[in-house]
């Protein structure tokens, strides 16, 4: 759903830049260097092994070359996931879906709908904990591709959803194109709640998200944000909990606001005790559509 909050940020950004003359110059800013914090990016999905990325924050102007990026990852953390009965220690693995491609993944436990999972991370002399539950997945009634006039080749993916009656359903949308995307990508505004659509049956659409700072050709030309006729697109529609909705919503706003003076710095509510980031349970449903 073209989330209205994203509109707002988008609108304000556009107004800001269309109104201003391009009187812009580079300046030098001196900022303090705080102590690094541990960041935990973790997901557990039903039927999948849970994984966690453990990294540390850096001072704002630290150079961002490949060695530095590699150094943000914490290699010697101990990551344990438990469902209350059994626990599993996650192993350090290489996975090219991630950047940097180093993560921790459990090998002996898969997620189950309705269960609560506790995460414990020992890193940099600190102990971080978090809990999450995997909500019941909600299926989309249908999905389809529709071209966006005046184009006959480019368009968006549409879906029809019947939101279950009762407040408390929160969602997140991902897409992945066969042969073009390395992994599932969430567009800005990918997460929404049912506060205004509770119990309703409606259509919505999403544009194509892009990786942060992508240099891919189709993310930098007229195809940016669009799906193309001929694409085979897998839609991953996830049910997440309230804390997840608030976290991902704030995260996306903060990332997309970068440069917008009209937005206040957004605080991102983390569920990690002792650190930053989020440990989220996903109740996922997959659907494929071919754009034609």
């Amino acid at each position: 759903m073209k989330s209205k909050r994203i509109f707002f940020a988008y609108c304000l950004l556009l107004i800001a830049f269309s109104f201003l003359s391009s009187c812009e110059k580079d300046i030098t800013v001196v900022l303090p260097r705080p102590e690094p914090t541990v960041v935990v990016e973790g997901k557990i999905e039903q039927g999948q092994y849970p994984y966690v990325v453990v990294s540390r924050s850096q001072a704002y102007f630290d150079p961002v070359d490949s060695s530095v990026i590699a150094n943000t990852i914490i290699f010697n953390a101990v990551v344990i996931v438990s469902d209350g009965t059994t626990s599993d220690t996650m192993k350090l693995t290489i996975d090219n879906e991630f950047f940097p491609p180093i993560i921790y993944r459990a090998e002996n436990m898969v997620g189950e709908v309705g269960k609560t999972y506790h995460l414990t991370v020992y890193a940099e002399g600190k102990t971080l904990t978090a809990s999450t539950t995997i909500p019941t997945p909600v299926s989309l009634d249908s999905i389809w591709f529709k071209t966006q006039p005046p184009s006959t080749e480019l368009g968006f993916i549409w879906a029809h959803l019947s939101d279950p009656v009762g407040l408390g359903n929160n969602y997140r949308w991902f897409t992945k194109r066969f042969g073009k995307d390395v992994r599932f990508v969430a567009p800005i505004g990918s997460t929404f709640e049912d506060r205004f659509v509770d119990g309703k049956s409606f259509d919505f659409a999403y544009n194509r998200g892009a990786e942060f700072n992508s240099s891919a050709e189709d993310d930098n030309n007229e195809e940016r944000g669009y799906f193309k006729v001929g694409d085979t697109v897998v839609v991953k529609f996830c049910a997440i909990d309230r804390a997840g909705f608030e976290f991902y919503r704030s995260l996306e706003i903060e990332v997309s606001n970068n440069g917008n003076p009209f937005a206040a710095p957004t605080s991102i509510p983390s569920n990690i005790n002792g650190g930053l980031g989020f440990w989220g349970g996903y109740g996922a449903v997959y659907d494929t559509v071919i754009a034609q």
């Binding site: 303090p32 705080p34 850096q58 001072a59 704002y60 943000t72 995260l251």
Partner: peptide
């Protein structure tokens, strides 16, 4: 901002 971190590649 005084610091930054990577999350989901951003």
């Amino acid at each position: 901002p005084v610091a930054r971190y990577l999350y989901e590649g951003s």
